[in-house]
Design a protein around this nucleic acid. Structure first.
Lengths: 340, 340
DNA sequence: GTTGGCTGTCAAAGCGCTTTGGAATTCGTT
DNA sequence: AACGAATTCCAAAGCGCTTTGACAGCCAAC
């Protein structure tokens, strides 16, 4: 069943049917309803290839998926993708994903762009001075960045959360509770969000004239085990930290295991605040001691990015080019006054 | 630059240029060379949408990516995708990936198929009696399965490795070395490969009149930490096993940590054979005690699947519909005679 | 009663490629 | 010299959609 057949069936021209389907105003509501009804009955679906040829839009957004072990392959990325995906499906868009070795991300990105299979690009896991930005800007294809690139002028469209603010606020809370010995369980050191979170913590401490030493900051993959190991190390220090900031609830999972194994009490001996990406299988309120968190839904970010990117492709009213989401600080039981 | 312009530039018809480009025989070699030269100079690239409309082929293969935490989000899947991707790029194909909640895989698969964006589908992580098979067979779209579905008639195109044979052989080797107490570190129990590997081990033992108890078999996500935990449990058993079969080098990583921490010597107190998916960052020969492994490259499997799928779409000489790859048993230092 | 502006519809022209069905040229055979 | 077969090329017809430009029909306004 194609447009021609459908229009013959209805005794209308292809033009009218097409317009009825695409929401153009110059078609009688009664006619439109008749068309829609026929579509329902016949199960007509417009041919994507023809649409694509006629409009010049592929109806898809592209992304390069680095296949490094500690990189994309974590829960966080999956969660984010789900958000992107749900929103894309809603608009009848799809993804084209190009898996690539991490050392050839730029090349993969370029190939994806010139392949003609995508209308727009999306990139994530920004690093400081990320080389992909220059490349993207030279490409004359819409793109959107999740995160930012520390050190570059932010003259590109992005969606980011206020990582620095989040960790600054979290540190402030712990300072108010009287803590002075801090530790940080962070993500990979080269990633932008890790840099900013660290800096948020460092700044908050500096305001009180405090410092944090390198040994008290770990930069690891965002899974539970490295969290546990790092925490074990912290706990063995002569002056062990009492206040822990943690870049993910997944890291926290490991960290808390270490705390328990050391026979310490979370919220009493050790206070911990984790950043909560709102992973469905890991809710901070379900921890044996509910976790104080800074919260921002990763899935929502994915959905929003899809939304903006799709709107850009469709040339609809442009969304703000740059968005910075505040995080929520939610106090639960894992934080308490500093032990004396 | 489009075909029309290019052909005018060359003083040829569009037909001839198109044929020269697509390798048709009825064009003079000299002419073809002239065309190719012009393509190089002008940087002409055929418009994908037009090609797609004219041929009816989208030039893409689709796959559903479940975004469950312990499922696809592991290194193995990334490695496999890289293989798929490399091969696809070589043929100028691309992927369309639909992220989906694991409870809606079948629906997502159907939506992907009717979206008209893909020519063929690929599915992995087969389970016993996998519901996706029936769905795919009703779809009249080419598909290929990585693995098999235990319990269903294998009347569908697949590529699988001989999981049962691999673990049978591995167990045999350990039996010959005099081991009698076995343990298995396996992947998730519902996945086909895990079922078969287990059965390979069980069969080899049965031939010697040996049995393995449930406590000696762990089924976990394929990451290092569950490997370590399971191994720790094994080592605390009163009659602790001396021969370990392990479904992945990643699991082995954790297991060996447990062995070391218990002060035991790999290859002496404990013999271990792991299945090696040839992950580039985790080579069995680089373990402090080089690992005896059953080997089969996951990346190669990905590439082969892409190759077959693409050939099917292009209607080239059909590859064999079903392939079962043997694994290589490679003996290194992690296996030794049973301690007495 | 003519003009002008809306409404709702249509025919036809692309979009850029592949492919069919010749046609022109060359070559080997009789 | 003549003829059929290769060889090499071409014009034109799709593929199924969107979009342009035009045109009836209708009503209100002058």
């Amino acid at each position: 069943m194609n447009l021609k057949q459908l229009s013959e069936l209805l005794g209308l021209s292809q033009t009218t049917v097409s317009r009825a389907l695409n929401g153009y105003p110059e078609v009688n509501e009664a006619t439109r309803e008749r068309v829609l009804q026929a579509v329902r009955e016949t199960g007509y679906r417009p041919n994507k290839a023809a649409q694509r040829l006629a409009t010049g839009k592929a109806g898809s957004i592209g992304l390069v998926m680095p296949t490094a072990p500690d990189h994309y392959s974590d829960v966080h990325f999956g969660e984010f993708l789900t958000g992107l995906g749900e929103e894309a499906v809603r608009h009848d868009f799809h993804f084209v994903i190009m898996p690539a070795d991490p050392d050839d991300e730029v090349g993969a990105l370029r190939r994806l762009a010139i392949s003609g299979n995508v209308d727009a690009l999306f990139i994530a896991y920004m690093r400081g001075h990320d080389p992909r930005l220059a490349m993207l800007q030279s490409l004359s294809m819409p793109f959107l960045v999740h995160g930012r690139s520390f050190g570059s002028e932010p003259d590109y469209p992005y969606l980011d959360i206020d990582n620095e603010g989040a960790f600054y606020d979290a540190a402030k809370l712990l300072l108010q509770l009287g803590h002075t010995r801090f530790a940080l369980l962070n993500g990979p050191a080269h990633l932008d969000f890790a840099i900013r979170r660290r800096s948020g913590l460092v700044n908050a401490l500096a305001e009180r004239g405090l410092e944090i030493s390198e040994e008290c900051m770990s930069h690891t993959a965002m899974t539970d085990e490295p969290g546990q190991f790092a925490m074990e190390r912290f706990l063995q220090m002569p002056e062990r930290p009492t206040a822990i900031l943690c870049s993910s609830t997944v890291l926290a999972l490991g960290a808390i295991r270490a705390v328990n194994q050391a026979g310490l009490k979370l919220g009493e001996d050790i206070s911990l605040i984790a950043h909560d990406d709102v992973l469905p299988h890991l809710k901070p309120e379900n921890f044996s001691v509910p976790l104080t968190t800074t919260r921002s839904s990763l899935r929502a970010a994915g959905a929003r990015i899809a939304q903006r990117l799709i709107a850009t492709v469709k040339q609809e009213t442009p969304y703000p080019e740059q968005e910075l989401w505040k995080t929520e600080l939610i106090v639960r039981a894992s934080t308490g006054p500093a032990p004396r």
